[in-house]
Every structure is written in C-alpha cells, then in structure tokens.
C-alpha cells in the first residue's frame, strides 16, 4: 500500500511538471495571444489528478510480466486521454478548431505519459546498476569466504 501511494505521488508530481511544459509549448503554438489569471496555476494540478485516476482504479492482484505491465500502461494512458478530453472539452460543440486542440492535447498526454514512464525507468536503472555493483561485490565476498 505504501509503495502504491509512493508510486502514485511520484507519477503525479512528474505529470504536473510535464503538463506545465506541455501547456507552455501548446499555448505558444496554438494560442500565443491568450492571457490568463492566477487561476491558471490550478489546471496542471487538476490534470495531474485526472492523470493518476486510472492508476488508482487499476490494481494488479498478481505479479505482472514486463509485457503485461507495458499493456497495462498503454490502457492507463488511453483512459487518461479519454478522461482529460472529457474534462476539457465535454459539452462543447465539435468543430475543426476544437478537433485540432483536442488532438494536440491527446498527443501531449501520450508524450507526457511516456515521459513519466521513461523518467521512472531511468531512476530505476540507476538503482539497478548500483544493485548490480553490490551483487558483484557480494559474490566476490562469498567466493573468497569473507
């Protein structure tokens, strides 16, 4: 349970940071003249919360293989896209402009999601390398009888 909360919080904070970057890039390209008030600071947090909803809902009862874990991540990512699009554009009339923005948002979410997974993977890779070094030392210790 503790690990799950740590996981979800980690994903949330990485997501919020990447959402800020995505809003900066998308806004500069699609609506460079747009002005905002202070309320804009709440949106990355809301989007971050929406982004972790699938991770909170989907639980694995047994140990998943790496392939199954990748499939789970893809499903979670698609769920996140659907939730975000529903939150941002739900109830609005669909026109060409909206479709372009929605597609940009969907692509951004996918990039952000992949970013979160890649960053987490690199952090784990550092840990794994350290553990491998410890393992080699451990085996040398055992073989020399110390």
């Amino acid at each position: 349970m503790k690990d799950r909360i740590k996981d979800i919080l980690g994903s949330f904070f990485i997501s919020v940071t990447l959402i800020n970057v995505a809003m900066l890039v998308l806004g500069s390209i699609l609506m460079p003249q747009q002005q905002f008030g202070y309320e804009v600071f709440i949106y990355p947090l809301i989007y971050g919360v929406i982004g972790i909803i699938p991770a909170v809902i989907v639980r694995e009862g047994r140990e998943l293989s790496v392939k199954q874990m990748i499939i789970r991540h893809v499903i979670q990512m698609l769920l996140t896209v659907v939730l975000l699009l529903a939150f941002m554009f739900g109830g609005r009339t669909v026109d060409r402009e909206l479709l372009i923005i929605a597609a940009s948002v969907a692509v951004s979410v996918m990039i952000i999601y992949a970013g979160v997974v890649v960053i987490s993977w690199f952090l784990d890779k550092k840990t794994a390398d350290r553990m491998t070094e410890d393992l080699i030392r451990f085996q040398e210790r055992q073989n020399s009888g110390l």
């Binding site: 874990m69 990748i70 987490s120 784990d124 890779k125 794994a128 553990m131 491998t132």
Partner: peptide, 10 residues
C-alpha cells in the same frame, strides 16, 4: 545482472 522492470520492480 539486475535490470529495471517498470513500476519499481527489477
């Protein structure tokens, strides 16, 4: 060797 395997597993 120990390698990362997503979600804090190895």
């Amino acid at each position: 060797q120990i390698k990362p395997a997503l979600n804090g597993r190895f």
